[in-house]
């Protein structure tokens, strides 16, 4: 049986662990304008990233956007997932496909669509102007809000499908039992459905949070040149600044922060679902 794991293990070792190890090694090197980098073993790059107010702000923005998007995806996704999971008609598979539909469009194409919608001369401003509701175009593109909406549209299907799978496994009978015992719909949700759906909430939030933390195309295209999140910042160091050691250190900081928060979050949620 263990042999079945071999191809996947080789893939992970070759394509994930090895490059990550190399990246980590690079993050300990020193930048050299002439040589690009010099072999070293120092934490200098990490300390510089943590000390620099600019990168602290970039990390703060990234965390803010990731938390907002995760929370919003959960709030929007739960009712949709519930509806999808409890659907009985033959339209269910169609609804599932429609949920996945946004993912058929690449991030760049989708962001271009948002730009056409949200821009100064975009569809929304044209509409508002035409109706006489605004005199000046309302700035929507190149705002944090635009980035959050853009990322939300990418991650919502992941949240919905993860939650729906777990909600589907909650027997309808337990909801009926709660109602039969006198619980109104809100109480039944709070006392029975939500606690039983917590593993799905944890899985969905972790998945979506990781996707948000690492978002690249959407913040670049919808956030504009002034707006920075971590993944674009890493890209800048590698490609524009050609400072590989510092870029590698930023990449590892992003990885570590994401990992630590994910572990903390899922531990709390797992603990809650066990104690309830």
């Amino acid at each position: 049986m263990a042999a079945l794991l071999l191809p996947a293990t080789l893939l992970v070792l070759g394509l994930l662990v090895a490059p990550m190890a190399m990246l980590f090694r690079i993050s300990l090197n020193q930048y050299d304008a002439a040589l690009m980098m010099r072999e070293a073993l120092s934490a200098e790059n990490y300390l510089r990233a943590l000390a620099d107010p600019y990168y602290r702000e970039v990390l703060g923005t990234t965390l803010g956007v990731a938390f907002s998007c995760t929370l919003l995806a959960l709030l929007i996704g739960f009712p949709a997932a519930y509806w999808l999971a409890r659907m009985e008609s033959r339209w269910k598979s169609l609804a599932t496909i429609l949920t996945l539909f946004p993912l058929l469009v690449g991030n760049v194409v989708r962001a271009a669509g948002w730009m056409a919608l949200l821009g100064r001369d975009g569809a929304i401003n044209a509409g508002l102007f035409g109706l006489g509701l605004v005199a000046e175009p309302w700035p929507m593109l190149y705002t944090t809000g635009a980035v959050i909406v853009g990322i939300l549209a990418v991650v919502a299907p992941y949240m919905i499908l993860t939650l729906a799978a777990v909600i589907e496994s909650i027997p309808r009978g337990v909801e009926e039992a709660a109602a039969n015992l006198g619980a109104g719909p809100m109480t039944a949700f709070r006392r029975v459905v939500l606690p039983l759906a917590l593993p799905g909430v944890a899985a969905g939030c972790v998945l979506v949070f990781i996707l948000c933390m690492n978002a690249y195309a959407t913040p670049v295209l919808l956030g504009g040149p002034q707006f920075k999140m971590m993944a674009p910042a890493v890209y800048d160091q590698f490609v524009r600044g050609t400072n590989w050691p510092f870029g590698a250190a930023l990449a590892f900081l992003l990885l570590i922060v994401t990992l630590v928060l994910t572990i903390i979050g899922s531990t709390i949620l797992a603990g809650r679902s066990r104690s309830r």
Binding site: E176, A177, V192
Partner: peptide
């Protein structure tokens, strides 16, 4: 409705 129902599957709250 004030009915007490026993379900075929029992429908106990597993948590």
């Amino acid at each position: 409705r004030d009915t007490g129902m026993v379900f075929q599957s029992y429908a106990l709250f597993p948590h």
